[in-house]
Simulated assay, not measured.
Amino acid sequence: MLEDVAGGDYQPFWVGFPLTDIHKCIAPDILHQLYQGVLKHLVYWVQHVMGKKELDERIQKLPPTSGVRHFSKGISGLSQLSGTEHKNIARILLGCLVGKIDPRGITACRAILHFIQLAQYSSHDQDTLQYMKQELDTWHSHRDYFIHEGARENFDLPKFHSLLHYVDSIRWIGTTDNSNTEAFERLHIDFAKEGWRASNKKDHFRQMITFLSRQEKVASYDFYQSWIQKSEDIDIPGEDEEDVLFSPPSSKNSSNSSTVISIAKNPSVRQKKLSTIALLHNAPGFSGTLKLFLNDLLPKDERLSKANTMAQILPFSSLDVWHSFKLTPLRVLEEDPEKVSIKSQPLSSSSSTSRQDTVLVLETDKAQSTAVRGWITYQKYLAVADNILS
């Protein structure tokens, strides 16, 4: 039994390699170190300072918004929080502290949240790495607030210590998306949960191994069959070999990459007057903005000046209106990205509250690594979302 116990004193495999620094091989892990570790501790301390009930009430009162989960019952009753739930908590936590926690505590929380966001950048330069150092220094300068409030006695926590090595690790082995274990969390379902469900719950380990082995064989056979089928469909190149090799891709293969926005077939409201749209959607400049939008769609030699465009009369007085559309982000990992729902829903008999999601539109490729320079907001064109939805 003693031989099977982990944590024994064994001679490590790198002994004898003088140029090996094993500490540099310990890569950052955004999921388990930051979200499931640092942020988890931070939420506990905040709950201790302001009270679980108070924090839950503030979270419940937040309006629903796109891309953020609405915790209608708060967060204190949740158990075994997932990484996705911690991400949603990180998006709303700071706004719930205003007026209830001392500014030093808010500054400390903000520094940690900023550090978590900066650590996830897919590319870094000296400026962004310096931002990470500054946020970490801010955290160290204000973290004693939680000690004074009795939430902690010290900060001797390994996951908080790991923050000190993030900048050096990024310089040494690259950005954290190369070492984040979140990409492989899906394998828990494929390799463990499905095998467990397929077993009879008795001597389950052997059954799970057999299940996985059979799944791999089926997958390999399917791949072989698709390869054979594909080989049979391809003509042997002859004199027209160059035309075959350089033929353009079919629309069937390229449609998935171009389909980013999806919208319902039928509108939410048919033929709504422009004046009603401006009133209910809180967009007083909607008609003028719509004129400028339509003018930009014309060829350059046919476009009018801004003054002439605003003086024109629209050939219609009403529009079909959609209250929502779905946006599919670009695929980064192998799995299909989750669709994001964007809503611009006014007050109605069926809804007592309106919802106007903020939309950021890429206007130029000169966006900075931080802030939103190079982006225009929902307010700049007075309801860009309404133009899209209408």
Rank of each mutant, 00 (worst) to 15 (best):
residue 40 K to P: 05
residue 192 A to V: 14
residue 111 A to V: 00
residue 252 K to Y: 10
residue 143 R to E: 00
residue 191 F to D: 12
residue 308 N to M: 13
residue 268 S to T: 15
residue 85 E to S: 06
residue 218 V to E: 15
residue 253 N to I: 08
residue 289 T to D: 00
residue 252 K to N: 13
residue 349 S to R: 13
residue 376 I to A: 04
residue 286 F to Y: 07
residue 138 T to R: 06
residue 202 K to F: 06
residue 111 A to P: 02
residue 277 I to D: 07
residue 131 Y to W: 14
residue 206 R to Q: 09
residue 266 N to A: 14
residue 320 D to C: 07
residue 305 S to E: 06
residue 325 F to W: 04
residue 331 R to V: 09
residue 384 V to Y: 05
residue 295 N to Q: 12
residue 255 S to W: 01
residue 277 I to E: 06
residue 50 M to H: 04
residue 191 F to T: 09
residue 167 V to E: 12
residue 163 L to Q: 02
residue 83 G to W: 00
residue 39 L to W: 02
residue 340 V to E: 05
residue 381 Y to A: 12
residue 147 I to A: 09
residue 208 M to Q: 11
residue 52 K to S: 14
residue 91 R to G: 11
residue 50 M to I: 15
residue 303 R to H: 03
residue 102 D to L: 05
residue 17 F to R: 02
residue 287 S to F: 03
residue 77 G to E: 09
residue 330 L to W: 07
residue 291 K to M: 12
residue 55 L to F: 02
residue 303 R to N: 07
residue 349 S to G: 15
residue 238 G to Q: 07
residue 205 F to H: 04
residue 30 I to W: 03
residue 150 G to C: 06
residue 64 P to I: 05
residue 302 E to D: 12
residue 172 W to P: 01
residue 229 Q to F: 11
residue 261 I to C: 10
residue 345 Q to E: 14
residue 283 A to T: 15
residue 334 E to R: 05
residue 179 S to D: 08
residue 314 L to N: 01
residue 74 G to L: 08
residue 358 T to E: 14
residue 22 I to T: 08
residue 97 L to P: 04
residue 139 W to Q: 00
residue 221 Y to T: 12
residue 161 H to R: 10
residue 187 L to N: 10
residue 56 D to L: 06
